[in-house]
Design a protein around this nucleic acid. Sequence first.
DNA 1: CGCTAACTTGACAAATGTCAAAACATGTGG
DNA 2: CCACATGTTTTGACATTTGTCAAGTTAGCG
Lengths: 237, 237
Amino acid sequence: MPNGCPIAPTDLGRQALFAGLAEANLARIAEAGSIIDVKRGERVLSRGDRLDGLYVLLSGSLKLYVLSCGGDERVLRVLAPGDSFGEAIMFNRIPSPVFVESLASARLAFFPREVITDVLVRAPDFTDTMLRSMSNLMHQLIQDLETCCLHNALQRTVHYLLRKADAAPTPHVEVQLPASKAVVASMLNMSAETFSRELHRLQDEGLIEINRRVIYLRSRDGLIDLAQGSLKPQTAH
Amino acid sequence: MPNGCPIAPTDLGRQALFAGLAEANLARIAEAGSIIDVKRGERVLSRGDRLDGLYVLLSGSLKLYVLSCGGDERVLRVLAPGDSFGEAIMFNRIPSPVFVESLASARLAFFPREVITDVLVRAPDFTDTMLRSMSNLMHQLIQDLETCCLHNALQRTVHYLLRKADAAPTPHVEVQLPASKAVVASMLNMSAETFSRELHRLQDEGLIEINRRVIYLRSRDGLIDLAQGSLKPQTAH
DNA sequence: CGCTAACTTGACAAATGTCAAAACATGTGG
DNA sequence: CCACATGTTTTGACATTTGTCAAGTTAGCG
């Protein structure tokens, strides 16, 4: 599919970021936006790039990550359809601190800064949505920092599973990993090997069941106990 | 000094967050604001607190931190006069994810949400300032995550020194630590002992000179090399 | 099938935290 | 101005966690 397809205002209204906007404003944004399709593994944004607008992910999935000079990768977020990125660097006019790459072929919409600021002026509610969306992101980041700095690998793993389970529409006992175990491990700031070991340790204790990229939570209470820090010493196998 | 003193609009205009606002709006904000004085060690905000407004630090210094269930503390930021906090939880109406405590007796101004949103509607420029301020914060957080996840203790230490030196009004060779070494160590996600050791290692190599809470950078180039990852093996003493 | 990528497992090494003690600094009241 | 009391920083010895490497296993997929 070629770039530059027209965007339907109705579709736009379904994106969380634009929900609640008046028809006229949706039309304005839709007209100024453009569609971009990327293949798996393609890079959408590199560290240092300037970006004069923001992206909304329409389908597929993206990872947002940082790299060490040595080439080590640390995934910050995996984006799902409906998520947006670029707000911070757009408003602040700074070069991007992160890389963005698609995990599966994806379709994005790009909206230039002008149309966003234009609508910000016209619709005070949009200001609110935007501020709230950024507050959300910030909250996420703080949680990530907290998770990765205060807890050990086992606790981070458990936290992740519980957060995922609670975030689901109906708090479910089944967690679907949004990407390969290696990517999730990187989000949790541990090596793929450690992640694998911790998951299997949980399975050995009967707390979860691993089935490819789906994790069944067998005992939520047991997991919560662990997350709180009841660090049993490593059980000899 | 009792709480509730009136705030001078002129003083307000000097705070980065409110710079550029028209007299009338400054007056509105000033009138709705209140002053709060806190002693060293006093807690201003706890995790879980709801906050219907934002704070600006007028004098003194504050630390913003998270706690593990075990009571371990991880400092996220040390705030200096002019800095603000509470935006994210105010806009998002979520309970605070962090604790805030004063490191030295401090004076704060509190502004309720109503007056902020009121002025946001009246002054579109203020929207911009606010979005930019939040983008800034977010950028900081990403840098922190990056620093604490991609680099080892030595690199984190060097990064910190270089960032501080560059951030100073005139890029200086002298870095003033904003708090005790233990607090700075926590910001860098390492124990006070490790921080001490890394600093002294840098001193032994002739790259810096430690003088209480002031660090003189002797060789910026040498430091930059280290930060890039030229990890010499630990030199035997 | 057979190829590739994803995942697991074990043995080992390296980085960092912990604990305890000592050295040092700072401030207070006599 | 001294001397004690308190808080901060340094140092050493040691334990622990986690990463790394290498090899093996499994699972999708043409």
